[in-house]
Structure formats: C-alpha cells, structure tokens
C-alpha cells in the first residue's frame, strides 16, 4: 500500500487563533469567519491552496465548492502563490492621469514580469488592480499590504532594489490637500504615539 502524502492542517497548531476568529462572530453567523480564515492562510502561505480551502470549508461547515466560490469572487485572494513582494499597480482613471500605465510598464520592465506572473525565485509578482483610494496621491504602488504613493521612477527603482536585498522600506504617509500643514500646526498639541512606526507587513 502506498503512503499518500498528507498536509498538516493549517489551523492544527493555531487553535487559539482559530477560536479567536470564530469568536468574533455570533454563533449563528459562523460562516462570516470564512473571509478572515482565508486571509490568515494567505498571509502565511501567499495563496490559498485547494487543501486549505477544504480545511476552511470544513471548519465553517460548508462545501469546498461553496468556499471556493466565495474566494474566487474577490480579487485579492490568490489560488497560486504570489511573490514575497506582491506588486499591485493601480491603473484606474486618477492614477492613469498621473502615469499609472507608465508605472505598470516600468515595473514590468524592471522585473521581467507581466500581470498575473510570479518570478521563479518567488520574490516578485505583479497584479493590475483597480482604484486603491489613493487618487490624490497618484500614482500608487501597493506592495503586499503597504501603499507607496506619488511614486517616481527613481523611487520605484530604489524600492525594487531594496526588495532585492529583502528590505521593505516604510510606506508613505502622504495625505495630500492641506493636511500636511495641519500636522505641523497641531503636532505640538497631541501626545506622541511611540507605537506608531508607520509600517504595515
């Protein structure tokens, strides 16, 4: 008899996390935990495999087909692994008016990848995305969960170089409008927050 390969269930050693996620929702709303469970797996594994979908479906009490139907509805869950640095370029109108298309072409040229591709070493992947709500600070490049706004050619090149060294610089804190001057005017009056390093994973 052949020993079939088995995969350790993702949540087998994360029972506290699992309980915390399920506990966010009322008992009758257990299915609401589907999206956060998908997020947890994707965060760790950079995609959600068929095996993980089956595991999550069983936890929630739905079929794997249903769970996959939900997952595939949303554009930020991935069925295939994305890179350690997932480069998402917004190309919707406000970004396009600020060079979003050229930014996309530039990132493609520098990485040798196009939309939907991941490189062989699993470092970079590229995805065209729609409006990220950064229209006032366009063009925007989202790397994993962090926004890099008003990006320039030299800025993108420096960012890519840093990522080739496995460093991810802190994201921008652009606000646009008159909110930068406000920060200056009122900084003295509000207590500083030592925990705010401004970084997203």
């Amino acid at each position: 008899m052949v020993d079939l390969p088995t995969l350790q269930p993702f949540f087998a050693d994360k029972l506290e996390l699992l309980a915390e996620i399920l506990g966010r929702y009322p008992e009758y709303g257990r299915r609401s935990a589907l999206m956060p469970l998908l997020w947890e797996v994707q965060r760790a594994e950079r995609h959600v495999s068929e095996a993980r979908i089956e595991e999550i479906a069983e936890i929630i009490g739905v079929t794997a087909t249903e769970a996959k139907g939900v997952m595939s509805f949303y554009s930020t869950y991935h069925e295939q692994p994305v890179g350690r640095y997932h480069l998402q370029v917004c190309r919707t109108l406000s970004c396009a008016l600020a060079g979003g298309d050229e930014l996309y072409a530039h990132v493609c040229e520098r990485t040798g990848l196009v939309n939907g591709e991941t490189d062989a070493e699993g470092r970079f992947s590229i995805q065209n995305v729609e409006c990220l709500g950064s229209c006032g600070t366009a063009p925007v490049l989202q790397v994993n969960d962090a926004f890099y706004e008003r990006v320039t050619r030299s800025g993108v090149d420096a960012l890519l170089e840093a990522m080739r060294r496995d460093e991810l610089p802190p994201p921008t804190r652009e606000r646009g409008g008159d909110n930068a001057s406000a920060a200056k005017a009122e900084r003295q009056t509000t207590p500083a927050d030592p925990t705010d390093a401004g970084g997203a994973a």
């Binding site: 606000r175 409008g177 008159d178 909110n179 930068a180 001057s181 406000a182 920060a183 009122e186 900084r187 509000t190 207590p191 500083a192 927050d193 705010d196």
Partner: peptide, 23 residues
C-alpha cells in the same frame, strides 16, 4: 486652505494628518 478658513469650523478632518491623533 479649508482647514484654516475663518468662515466655518473644520470638524470631520480636524485631526486627520495629525501625528498620534488616532489613539
């Protein structure tokens, strides 16, 4: 800037962009 416009009081966005205002 709207923030310092004397004709009305900025309320919704008064603390946006202010360091540490989120705590």
């Amino acid at each position: 800037t709207s923030r310092f416009d004397p004709r009305f009081e900025v309320t919704l966005y008064r603390y946006v962009g202010v360091e540490g205002a989120h705590t």
